[in-house]
Design a protein around this nucleic acid. Structure first.
Length: 249
DNA sequence: CACTGTTTAGGCTACC
DNA sequence: GGTAGCCTAAACAGTG
């Protein structure tokens, strides 16, 4: 039976899991990451069903965010304060949905212990960096940066490195996409009726795929670019930051 | 205080 | 029947 189009759901419950809905929301955002409140908004905007009983499904959604390794909590940028962190999708989590379908997953996405530890260490480092950044802005001495923070350790301190350093390669952590979705990861594409399994249509979608090498990495790089820019503008460059990239001619 | 995030637990359903 | 994925509820801690 063909899946109903998005518009036809009306007040009916859409056939998507909370994981799928959350993934859709995250992927609909330019930065591929959203705070919780924006995820809520995305869902209620598009699916009227979720305008009721908000307490119930929002609790479930938060549970999913915490419980599933496919969602990665990214600390807020220091120049964008607010409540709660940003949530993004682990690039390797593309594997979860067969054929890019957002219906029931074929397999739960689970990070190995080491991978999870690495990711947690890096994210903790990022949070630590943010705290240091804020402390610096407030005129207080920055708290010590976590020793595992390979990205942010004051390797170049106290003297700035002579060469214009590249932006930290956050994406090089462990977040490398193994496999691309077999279906364009856009809201419209994902909400279209699913092509039959193994059909030529599945492959047909491939050439139009955007480059999704590592969305988290891209977002993180953008994050750092903006961060460095903000730091430069404020003339508050912490010594443990690499010099800003040279302006592109 | 409201919101966010974590954790535990139990029940239901689909799949092998 | 066992297992995995999903949904729901609830308690609790942390945070702005």
């Amino acid at each position: 039976m063909p899946r109903p189009s998005r518009e036809s759901y009306g007040d009916q419950k859409p056939p998507y899991s909370y994981i799928s809905l959350t993934a859709m929301a995250i992927w609909s955002s330019p930065e591929r990451m959203l705070p919780l409140s924006e995820i809520y908004r995305f869902i209620t905007d598009r699916f009227p069903y979720y305008r009721r009983n908000t307490q119930r499904w929002q609790n479930s959604l938060r549970h999913n965010l915490s419980f599933n390794d496919c969602f990665v909590k990214v600390p807020r940028r220091p120049d964008r304060p607010g409540k709660g962190a940003y949530w993004t999708l682990h690039p390797q989590a593309f594997d979860m949905f067969e054929n890019g379908s957002l219906l029931r997953r074929r397999k739960r996405f689970k990070l190995h212990k080491g991978e999870k530890d690495n990711l947690n260490a890096e994210l903790a480092a990022l949070a630590s960096f943010n705290r240091a950044f804020l402390a610096r802005q407030a005129g207080a001495p920055p708290p010590p940066v976590m020793p595992t923070a390979s990205l942010y350790t004051p390797a170049a301190c106290p003297q700035p490195s002579p060469e214009p350093a590249e932006l930290p390669e956050v994406g090089a952590l462990t977040l490398v996409t193994r496999e691309r979705p077999r279906r364009a990861f856009t809201i419209e594409a994902l909400l279209e009726p699913e092509p039959p399994r193994g059909s030529a249509l599945t492959l047909h979608a491939m050439p139009s795929l955007p480059t999704l090498a590592s969305p988290y990495a891209l977002a993180a790089q953008r994050y750092h670019a903006q961060l460095l820019q903000a730091a430069a503008v404020a003339a508050l460059r912490p010594c443990y930051l690499p010099p800003p990239p040279l302006p592109v001619a």
